[in-house]
C-alpha cells in the first residue's frame, strides 16, 4: 500500500501566558491511497488541531515546533505559500468543522461553487458551471438548489453543497472534520454514505475526523485513536473493534450506546489539560492497569503486529 500522506512527529502548540498548550504533541500517522482513514477521540484531544497542522492552517498564537507532513512527495510545511495554494483544493480538499455555516448567505449556491472552482483551477466560467451542476447531482441534490440561497437549505443540504464543492476538482485526498456533527441521523447516514462513495467511485483517500465511533465503524478502513495530543492506537477497523488493545480504546468502544446493549460503561475521570499533560503515559490517571512504569515512562507507539500500532506498556 502506497502512502499518500505521511505525518511524522507533528507538534502543534499554542502560546499562552501560562505556557504552551501542547494540543498536538508528537503525532506520526500515514494515510494510504484509496482508503477511508478515521481519526477518533474526544473533544479536546487535538483532532481538529492535528488536521490544521497537516494542512498548515495553524495561525498565531499557534505554531508548529517540529514535524513533517509529506503529501504526494511534497513537504507541506515547507513549500512556498504559492505552491501550497495550488495544491489545496485541487489535490487536497478540506471540509472544516461547521463548514456548512460558512457559506455566504447573500450569494446563490451555484455562484459560490463556480467562484471556488475558477479560483483554484483556471477553468472558464461555462465549464466551471457545468462541473458545479454535475457535482450537485453527484451528491444527490436537485438542480434547483443551484439557484437557491444557503438559508433556503437545511443543514444536511448545505453540508452536501460543501462536499460537492470540495470534490469538484477531483482531489486525491479529502479531509473532513466532524462532517456529521449537528446533523439529524438520517442526514448523517446520507453524508457518511457520500464520503464512502468518494473512495469507491472516485478512488479518493478520505480522512474523517469524528468523535462518533459508530460513524467510523460504518465507513472506515482503518482507524487511529487519539488521546491527549497523541495517537494511542492504529489498526484496521475490524481489528480495533473486535479486539481493542489500548485501555482507552477499550473504554471508548464500551462507552458506545447501542440498541440492544444492556450495560454501557463510561471511562471514569476527566480528560487532562493540554497545558499540563500527565507524566508518563497520559492516560495513566484514568487507567485501571496503570503501574509505576506508566506514571514515569511515556510509552512510544509500536507496531505490535502487521498494521497494528499501540502505545501502551501492557504490550511490551
Amino acid at each position: 500500500m502506497e502512502p499518500i500522506l505521511e505525518v511524522d512527529d507533528l507538534r502543534v502548540y499554542y502560546k499562552s501566558i501560562w505556557g504552551d498548550y501542547k494540543s498536538v504533541d508528537g503525532v506520526s500517522v500515514k494515510a494510504y491511497r484509496n482508503e477511508v482513514l478515521s481519526i477518533a477521540g474526544e473533544s479536546g484531544c487535538g483532532k481538529s488541531t492535528l488536521v490544521e497542522g497537516i494542512l498548515r492552517l495553524v495561525k498565531p498564537p499557534g505554531y508548529i515546533p517540529t514535524g513533517k507532513v509529506i503529501f504526494e512527495g511534497i513537504d507541506i510545511l515547507r513549500v512556498p505559500e504559492e505552491e501550497l495554494r495550488r495544491i489545496r483544493w485541487s489535490k487536497l480538499a478540506y471540509v472544516p468543522q461547521g463548514a456548512m455555516n460558512s457559506l455566504n448567505p447573500v450569494i446563490k449556491v451555484e455562484e459560490q461553487m463556480v467562484d471556488a472552482i475558477i479560483d483554484h483551477s483556471g477553468m472558464d466560467k461555462e465549464k466551471a458551471k457545468e462541473v458545479a451542476l454535475a457535482m450537485l447531482k453527484e451528491v444527490g441534490l436537485p438542480v434547483e438548489v443551484a439557484n437557491m440561497y444557503p438559508h433556503q437549505l437545511s443543514g444536511g443540504m448545505k453540508q452536501r453543497v460543501i462536499i460537492a464543492t470540495a470534490i469538484a476538482l477531483k482531489p486525491n485526498l479529502v479531509i473532513a472534520d466532524e462532517p456529521t456533527t449537528a446533523l439529524d441521523v438520517v442526514v448523517q447516514r446520507g453524508i457518511l454514505q457520500l464520503l464512502r462513495m468518494l473512495k469507491e467511485n472516485y478512488h479518493m483517500t478520505v480522512i474523517m475526523v469524528s468523535h462518533d465511533m459508530a460513524a467510523h465503524a460504518q465507513i472506515a478502513d482503518r482507524i487511529a485513536i487519539m488521546y491527549a495530543g497523541k495517537i494511542v492506537e492504529v489498526g484496521l477497523i475490524n481489528q480495533v473493534f473486535k479486539e481493542p488493545l489500548h485501555p482507552y480504546t477499550k473504554g471508548l468502544i464500551s462507552a458506545i450506546p447501542a440498541i440492544g446493549k444492556k450495560y454501557v460503561k463510561g471511562i471514569p475521570g476527566l480528560a487532562p489539560s493540554p497545558l499540563n499533560w500527565p507524566s508518563g503515559c497520559r492516560f495513566h490517571p484514568r487507567c485501571q492497569h496503570a503501574t509505576e512504569l506508566c506514571v514515569k515512562v511515556e510509552p512510544s507507539i509500536r507496531e505490535v503486529e502487521r498494521e497494528r500500532f499501540v502505545a501502551c506498556h501492557l504490550y511490551g
Partner: peptide, 9 residues
C-alpha cells in the same frame, strides 16, 4: 435504519 451500528461487521 439510519442509526449507525457501532460494529464494522
Amino acid at each position: 435504519s439510519s442509526i449507525p451500528i457501532p460494529d464494522p461487521k
